[in-house]
């Protein structure tokens, strides 16, 4: 009975359904790419170049005759890998840093925050371009760039929560009940500080996908012939003016749908939190 009720509430939320559906599609593409894609993702066939969508090449072919559909499917692996890896790494670093910096006031904390200020005062995109140029056009360079962006973000979110939580009476009450610094940080503050982080995680994955695609689009991200959505749009950009729309459009749509799915899920997470199911400290 409980499951019947919960499933009904799931379907009462179109955002959740669409978000989860799109996410499932992406996971299917990641796991089963070789079986779904009719062509190898990097196989160029110059004789078949610039074909509009047809029965053989469902979404057409690009300038050097690679099958766009196959490349989009395989690119899911690259794009989501980068997104997930960057966000996971950033969480692993940013959350503890934010917790410490928020809990312990003093010079080290102030220095860390100044450092974050500097990183964040650079234009995101330019910082990314410069770093990828310096580190080399590898997937991991892109991940590091995204981490530079997300670590300060997560650390700030956690710190802001910690700063307000540490002044709450329930922390003083815990101290009276004998809790030490460690217990206060990890048992009292951290669980209460995670809510906004969880909401931000999903948004960040979407942001990561957009940024990765953007970096690749201007040639500062993943290198050809790796299948990557931004790179594929880039290779179709010049053709667009000539009316050859399919090369750029379909990978572009893949980006939109992927980012949308994470945005929808984040919104649902936020709604879940806001309705007070978790009993927030606010």
């Amino acid at each position: 009975m409980a499951s019947a009720r919960s499933s009904r509430s799931v379907f009462a939320r179109p955002g959740l359904v669409i978000g989860l559906g799109l996410l499932a599609l992406q996971f299917i593409a990641i796991v089963f790419a070789p079986w779904i894609a009719p062509f190898p993702p990097t196989e160029a066939n110059p004789l078949d170049s610039l074909q509009p969508p047809n029965a053989v090449h469902w979404l057409g072919t690009d300038e050097i005759g690679m099958d766009i559909f196959s490349r989009i499917v395989f690119a899911t692996r690259v794009n989501l890998l980068i997104g997930f890896a960057a966000v996971a790494l950033s969480l692993g670093v940013g959350v503890p840093v934010g917790l410490l910096v928020g809990y312990y006031r003093g010079l080290p904390s102030a220095l860390v925050m100044r450092f974050f200020d500097f990183i964040q005062s650079f234009p995101v995109f330019v910082l990314g371009m410069a770093l990828v140029a310096v580190l080399g056009q590898e997937i991991w360079s892109v991940v590091i760039v995204l981490c530079m962006l997300f670590v300060p973000m997560f650390a700030r979110i956690v710190r802001a929560e910690v700063l307000s939580l540490r002044e709450r009476p329930f922390i003083a009450a815990a101290r009276c009940s004998g809790a030490g610094d460690f217990a206060i940080m990890f048992r009292h503050i951290l669980p209460n500080a995670m809510t906004p982080v969880i909401v931000q995680v999903s948004v960040s994955i979407g942001m990561a996908i957009l940024l990765t695609a953007g970096l690749s689009f201007i040639g500062a991200g993943v290198r050809l012939p790796s299948p990557e959505w931004g790179l594929m749009v880039s290779s179709g950009a010049q053709q667009m003016i000539l009316g050859i729309w399919w090369i750029a459009l379909f990978p572009g749509l893949a980006i939109v749908l992927s980012v949308l799915s994470f945005a929808l899920l984040s919104d649902e997470a936020k709604r879940y939190v806001d309705t007070g199911r978790g009993g927030r400290a606010r």
């Binding site: 957009l210 179709g236 950009a237 667009m240 729309w245 459009l249 572009g252 939109v256």
Partner: peptide, 20 residues
Amino acid sequence: FAAGALPDFLVALLLVFVFF
């Protein structure tokens, strides 16, 4: 919602395609 998911380069290309 949707605007947050749009890559600017795709929007630019589509605008060029349609209006030019």
